[in-house]
Amino acid sequence: MEWTVLLESWIWLGCAAAGFAILFNVPVRTIAVIFLLGSLGGSLKLLALKLGVGAILSSFAGAVLVGFLSIYAGHLRHAPPFIFAIPAVIPMVPGAFAYRMMLGLIRLTRDVDEATFLHLLEETVTNGLKTFFVLMVLALGVAAPMLLTRRESAKHIKIQTIVRGKRR
């Protein structure tokens, strides 16, 4: 039962990534790979969430997976890796947290008594911080392979044969 749920969300994650890929006007040859990357990263996040890892760390795990896979995808389809990485991490964006923070802010501006205000404030700050950190961690995860391998261009990472002996 659990696995069918995961399989279903796998498809929806891929669709969300592919939709954004088309919004960003990616080359046609990359769409299938973006679908795959988005669903793999997203399901890792969902899996981690199910195992009890927090929202921030599990998003980080998903984003790092997407970041590393995007390097291989770049070699495979001859395109810069971030073209794959950005649409693929977007399904992991914390839309629910951001929405609750927004709603909290709106409610805070209305006239409320002090007890409700404090309760609302607590909720809003928690949701806002979660949104902020998850966004940060997503960007960090995408940048991770470039930071760890310390290369200027993804073309030089791992698969040296493509470079054909030119510079570096």
Binding site: S9, A16, A17, F20, I22
Partner: peptide, 11 residues
């Protein structure tokens, strides 16, 4: 993009 919005909703 509509489909991706619907996917988000499902997720």
């Amino acid at each position: 993009v509509g489909l991706s919005g619907a996917s988000f909703c499902r997720l």
